[in-house]
Design a protein around this nucleic acid. Structure first.
Lengths: 125, 125
DNA sequence: CGGTATCCAAAAGGATACTG
DNA sequence: CAGTATCCTTTTGGATACCG
């Protein structure tokens, strides 16, 4: 999550850089995109995303919830059931990261060509 | 730069996630936005951005250059002079991150309100 | 099930000294 | 000036064990 453990966040930096880091963080991006397809339970998200530890998923969800991007609905049943969904703010954020993600996907070919050119230029000692 | 030291980059992850991390990295964002205003020398960028170490700026620029987003023009003079500018690909990337940055700036008020509400809800032991 | 707490390994990143 | 190389601190993130 780019920031130590949320509780602090007391560095010296323009505040919106932090939000930017939350939504573009490794797991933040994936959570936002998954949730933009509809509400998910904790374990559904965990499976859908793949190799994410409970700790990181929890941390990511809490940060996004605190920022008002994700809504957490805990049903007081046994066993516990918690559903996560996007708020309106979260839907907007998700659209933005989707746009960026889509762009990188589309332009990946160009990037890889550039990398090959770059690498060759210096491998040719 | 989110990834160890570029040279490796050999983890297990869809490749475009890496590009996404490069352009949204702490310094990547700032470099792209600065360069979208026009070419800059190394030291100009350093001053314009503020508290960035030489190491991180160099690393960021090299990564973006390798990805084909930034063009590096080194003039063979003494003392050395190196100008950096965006490629077409880089301009596209810069536009995307600008959009995201602008969004976070505009919605910062909502985010901060959400945070206060969140924090109060649990400070009220 | 949906977390929290703790511990530890790995990676990011800054400071400093040095070079063409 | 524009880096590179080295060292060292901070942050990140995974594994594990436990709780309501």
């Amino acid at each position: 999550m780019a920031v130590s453990d949320r509780v602090s966040d007391g560095e010296q930096m323009c505040p919106h850089r932090l939000v930017l880091e939350h939504v573009t963080s490794r797991w933040g991006v994936l959570v936002l995109i998954r949730l933009s397809e509809g509400p998910h339970r904790f374990s559904e998200l965990r499976r859908a995303i793949g190799r994410v530890s409970e700790k990181m998923l929890t941390q990511t969800l809490q940060t996004l919830e605190r920022d008002g991007l994700v809504h957490r609905h805990a049903k007081p049943v046994i066993p516990p059931r918690v559903d996560y969904s996007l708020t309106e703010l979260g839907r907007e954020a998700a659209e933005q990261v989707r746009a960026l993600a889509t762009w990188t996907e589309q332009r990946m070919g160009d990037v890889q060509r550039a990398r090959r050119a770059y690498d060759e230029a210096r491998t040719a000692s």
